[in-house]
Design a binder for these strands. Structure first.
Length: 555
RNA sequence: UGGGAUGUCGCCAAGUGGUAAGGCAACGGGUUUUGAUCCCGUCAUUCGCAGGUUCGAUCCCUGCCAUCCCAGCCA
């Protein structure tokens, strides 16, 4: 019993639908399914669907199945089923029972097809693919019946059996539902139910040479599993008619509590793409290093970049579920990961663009150990050891010769600044190389400012970070930017021109010695820089920048 | 007049005949050895547009406008 106001959980049209279905007694619990086709890696858009499907059942004492929609062996691969399972588990969800496959229902699908044939509701059609297209008509003109539409039921049974036996060539014929060639729904103009494919399937090997189409398999798969609410994206709205038609014409599934399909809008993220085709293009054309490149909006890419499962779940909650076509601002995602990492990431200092800072009045050869907090707001995280000496590294961005304005808080000649966790220093002069690049800055320090403000009461506003030079460890930093120049690359069929050529910047600098054994993908906050994690695919000390700190400094 | 959908703050998004939640962003202010975090405050007389019904409309009706989806033997 807390007297805190419970957080307001935003509702959505799917929750409303479920509530009403439970109130009316239609269903007593909720069963959903996440049905990926194993033909690519999961991305942030899938994550939204996973969080929806797996998340919603927790509130209703129901469950969610993982069912691979593997009805097209030509495009699918076992590699993808493994990566998909891994990504779902990493996101923190458990599916109900064993992993399901549409392909394990092939026998049932076949019997359903026979039932439709027996009812005069399906027929074997020998039109070629091109002819089928011509017969289908257009959006504004009705189609024409196939010449095979009136083949007798008995003959169709025989023909379909022959299809299954492999007596026909690939493409020679298909099984079609007999619905309405003049329907305003294109998907109801005698849709194809089965096609012939002499392909080896990753689950059923060579058991079958006929494979069901999505529209035929999906609704039946849902019905077999007792799915109550079949959630999919908006582009399937028309397909709902074939979904309902099939279940209503199959005796064993035509029940009041049969599954129903509900469509929500897919996630579009600014400056990214959630098109499997386009993601594959980026991989195939070597614009990125692979599906898990940290710039990719794939789950594996986000993970390698340093995004946590909790932050992705939080993001899904924040963007909500609706039927509006939208383009989500990346700042919502960034805010989710910052909120998580701010609480959990140990603080450390890293210098990304190093220049030397020599403290002239600090004894040469002396090295001081300083015990400093790992997290400023969480003492329980403990302390770590850092060092201080005559010579340290600071970031090039933190020194300027002349203070540009009175808001400027970093180091400059004759200006004092706090070295984070250490002393107050004042710059005196600097050396540049022949190109004018600043190489070394010289300063003096105030010995009486360790862990306290100057005793004379003078205020030191700025704080900059540093790494002691003799103990510093070299590291590589990978700084990422958006992959596309366009906020909505979905608008463009040809992505090449909108690819950001500077989406990866590699820097070499220094980290604190205690980071030399940093664990892969564990988040650290490099103070004043952002959140970083050690790259999982690199040998040495390579850190990926997950996201910067919020920056409210406007110049 | 092919059909199916959707239009609420810069971006997401609740609401629904009774007088516009929340988050992100932005902007003020406070705290601060991270220009971070944290805290406090500001931010839609208005819900695509135009009519109508009603005491009262974002919500109901009519008509427009805009955007997205559908003519795979892909999913």
């Amino acid at each position: 019993m807390s007297d805190l106001t419970p957080p307001i959980k935003s509702t959505n049209f799917i929750r409303n639908q479920i509530n009403s279905d439970i109130d009316s007694g239609l269903h007593s619990s909720v069963i959903t399914r996440f049905p990926p086709e194993p033909n690519g890696y999961l991305h942030i858009g899938h994550a939204k669907s996973i969080c929806l499907n797996f998340g919603i059942v927790k509130d209703y004492d129901g469950w969610c199945n993982l069912r691979f929609d593997d009805t097209n062996p030509a495009k699918e691969d076992i590699e993808y089923v493994n990566s998909i399972k891994k990504d779902i588990q990493w996101l923190g969800f458990d599916w109900n029972g064993e992993v399901k496959f549409s392909s394990s229902y092939f026998d049932i699908f076949y019997k359903c097809a026979e039932e439709l044939i027996s009812k005069g509701l399906a027929y074997v059609c020998f039109l070629s693919a091109d002819e089928t297209r011509e017969y289908r008509g257009t959006l504004k003109q009705p189609g024409q019946n196939s010449p095979d539409r009136d083949t007798s039921i008995e003959q169709n049974k025989t023909l379909f059996k022959k299809m299954k036996e492999g007596d026909f060539k690939e493409g020679e014929c298909v099984l079609r539902a007999k619905i309405d060639m003049s329907s305003s729904f294109m998907c109801m103009r005698d849709p194809t139910l089965y096609r012939i494919r002499f392909e080896t399937h990753h689950q059923t090997n060579d058991d079958w040479c006929i494979y069901p189409m999505y529209d035929f398999a999906h609704c039946i798969g849902d019905a077999i599993e007792g799915v109550t609410h079949s959630l999919c994206t908006l582009e399937f709205q028309d397909n709902r008619r074939i979904y309902d038609w099939l279940l209503e014409h199959l005796d064993q599934f035509n029940k009041s509590d049969r599954p129903h399909q509900f469509e929500f809008s897919r996630l579009n993220l600014e400056y990214a793409t959630t098109s499997k085709r386009k993601l594959k293009f980026l991989v195939d054309e070597n614009h990125v290093s692979g599906w898990n490149d940290p710039r990719m909006p794939t789950i594996s890419g986000l993970r390698r970049r340093g995004y946590t499962a909790a932050s992705i779940r939080d993001f899904s909650e924040r963007v909500g579920v609706s039927k509006v076509n939208s383009l989500t601002d990346v700042s919502i995602l960034e805010s989710s990961i910052r909120d998580d990492l701010n609480k959990t990431a140990p603080r450390t200092m890293a210098v990304i663009n190093p220049i030397k800072l020599v403290i002239e009045n600090y004894p040469e050869g002396k090295i001081e150990s300083l015990n400093v907090p790992i997290h400023p707001q969480n003492e329980e995280m403990g302390t770590r050891m850092i060092f201080f000496s005559h010579e340290i590294y600071i970031d090039k961005e933190d020194f300027i010769e002349v203070v540009p304005n009175n808001k400027y808080k970093r180091l400059a000649i004759n200006k004092e600044v706090r070295l984070r966790n250490a002393y107050v220093v004042k710059a005196t002069h600097f050396d540049s190389d022949k190109d004018g690049n600043i190489k070394t800055v010289y300063c003096t320090y105030d010995p009486d400012t360790l862990g306290k403000n100057p005793s004379d009461g003078r205020k030191v506003k700025g704080v900059i970070h540093y790494v002691e030079s003799s103990k510093a460890i070299s590291a590589e930093f990978r700084i990422y930017d958006r992959l596309f120049l366009e906020s909505n690359p979905a608008k463009f069929d040809d992505l090449s021109s909108s690819i950001n050529p500077n989406s990866l910047e590699i820097k070499n600098g220094f980290i604190e010695p205690n980071l030399s054994n940093a664990k892969i993908e564990k988040a650290y906050q490099f103070e004043r820089e952002g959140y970083f994690c050690r790259d999982s695919e690199s040998e040495g000390l390579v850190f990926n920048k997950t996201v910067g700190l919020r920056d409210t400094w406007n110049q």
